[in-house]
Computed example of a mutant assay.
Amino acid sequence: MTERIIVVGAALYDAGRLLAARRSAPEELAGRWELPGGKVEPGELPEQALVRELREELGVEVEPLERIPGAWPLGRPGYVLWVWTAKLVSGEARPLQDHDALRWLTPDQVGEVDWLDQDRPAVAEAARRLRRA
């Protein structure tokens, strides 16, 4: 049986917008957009991983809010994506690792970027939640 590895993603909100991050690597994902995040390390809670990953990848401090229901398989066996809504607490997001561009999108703009397939359901739900806020 393949071990399940959780990858966390952030539907990061600020001023009524959602952050999209364009992948720069690996080659097969480069140029497509995702919700930023990364792997949960051993002994780490998913929410802790989300805070750490966004600090490392974007240079920001965030507060996880709630998990978006669902778990989406990723391209590697055993890898699964869990997504949390989160709010920006401090810092200005910059593409420090694994990304070459960032965009803050209103709910009506989320369809303007080419999201990774596994992120699309969570992005749709995140946009719905933003519209209600």
Rank of each mutant, 00 (worst) to 15 (best):
L58Q: 04
L105S: 12
E66K: 07
L102C: 08
A49S: 11
L96P: 06
P69N: 11
V51F: 03
P73V: 09
T85G: 10
L96I: 07
R76T: 10
R55T: 00
P95C: 04
P69F: 05
P73D: 10
G70K: 08
V62E: 03
E66F: 07
V83P: 11
R103Q: 08
V80F: 11
W72D: 08
G70F: 12
T85L: 05
D100H: 01
I68P: 02
P77W: 00
Q97C: 08
A93H: 12
A49P: 01
A49L: 09
V80S: 15
P64Q: 03
V62T: 09
V89I: 15
E63Q: 10
P64W: 04
R67H: 05
Y79L: 13
I68C: 05
L65Y: 00
L58D: 02
E53P: 00
D98P: 03
V62M: 04
E61A: 15
L58F: 04
R103W: 06
V83E: 05
P69E: 10
H99W: 07
T85Y: 15
E47R: 10
L58K: 04
G75C: 11
V83R: 08
V89E: 13
E57M: 13
P95L: 00
T85M: 06
G78V: 13
L58E: 07
P73E: 10
R67E: 13
E47D: 07
A101G: 09
V60R: 07
V62Y: 04
E92C: 12
R67S: 01
H99I: 09
P95M: 01
A71E: 14
E66G: 02
G91A: 11
D100N: 00
A86Y: 09
E61N: 12
W72L: 07
P69T: 07
A49D: 05
R76K: 11
R76S: 14
G91T: 12
E56F: 11
R67L: 08
D100P: 06
V51T: 11
V62S: 04
P73K: 06
E56G: 06
W72M: 14
G70N: 02
W104T: 04
P64S: 05
K87G: 12
E47M: 09
V62R: 02
D98E: 04
A49G: 00
A101D: 12
K87Y: 05
I68W: 00
A71Y: 12
V89K: 10
S90V: 00
K87C: 12
G70P: 04
P95D: 01
A93V: 03
D98W: 06
L74P: 00
R94L: 15
R55K: 13
L96Y: 05
L54Y: 02
E92S: 13
V60P: 02
W84R: 07
A93T: 02
D100R: 08
P73Y: 09
P95W: 03
G78P: 05
G70Y: 04
A86L: 02
L50S: 06
P64V: 03
V89L: 14
L102A: 06
A71H: 15
V83D: 10
P46R: 00
G91S: 09
G91K: 07
L105R: 09
L96M: 11
G91V: 13
R55W: 12
E47T: 14
E92A: 12
L88S: 07
Q48G: 15
G75Y: 15
V60N: 06
A101Q: 10
A71V: 11
V51R: 08
L81M: 15
E63S: 10
P46W: 00
Y79K: 11
A93E: 14
R52Y: 10
A101V: 11
G91D: 13
